[in-house]
Design a protein around this nucleic acid. Sequence first.
DNA 1: GTAACTGTATTAATACGGTTAGTACAGTTA
DNA 2: TAACTGTACTAACCGTATTAATACAGTTAC
Lengths: 121, 121
Amino acid sequence: MFFINSRDKTPIYEQLCRQAREQIALGVLKPGEPLPSVRSLSTELGINPNTIQRAYRMMEDEGLTVSIPGKGNFVTEDTDALQQDHRAKQCETVRRELAALKKLGGTKSDVLQLVDEVYGG
Amino acid sequence: MFFINSRDKTPIYEQLCRQAREQIALGVLKPGEPLPSVRSLSTELGINPNTIQRAYRMMEDEGLTVSIPGKGNFVTEDTDALQQDHRAKQCETVRRELAALKKLGGTKSDVLQLVDEVYGG
DNA sequence: GTAACTGTATTAATACGGTTAGTACAGTTA
DNA sequence: TAACTGTACTAACCGTATTAATACAGTTAC
């Protein structure tokens, strides 16, 4: 469910939080689904429990999960808003990158060809 | 020519190097054009000369500039390859972001609308 | 109730990297 | 010669990621 890219220079807790964000947006992590416990994920990944704790706290701060003391951490019940938000942000990213490509001389037909490659002719 | 975004968490020397990369790709920085001296840019931006030196070294390592001891740092003479390379990378970025958007449920018509917004109907 | 889980909080120590500071040396130019 | 230029080097400071070691409280199953 989670993994660590040691080549990635971003902090471990950010990697984990980002993965949760993406997997919720993709529907891989489903509403109410329990996450691994702090200690089990800690031993599984071979990192300190404090780092997991910080990742889980960040997930909860972003509204991705809810933390219930004594029980565990769970994916939030309403992932719909998160998915829509993530999709809107991705649209904005695409728009920004398209504008950058245009500035570099990329033509509309260049872009349309890229779209065809992704979506099929 | 260069500026520092203190809110940007990326290192100053990376910010400067990225700006050089972008401005060369956009044709703002022209082949052979001299860059500010290490010490003058240092005082202008209010940061340490060592940081500028590191940024300039990184630029040279990327082939963006050439450093001539006693004279200064200059934009490389052949910026064409750099521009083409930058444009190819930007195409790859757009393709990647498009694929991500598709995974999130973005339809082809959604994307085509974005393209129209950027390039005009 | 006890044991074994769960999350939470706190403090200290370590490690790494970015940045600053200061100095010194060598090439270039007027 | 003087005033630029880039380069090299060391030491120190600081913020942050990470580890380490505890301690406390809620939950669950026996």
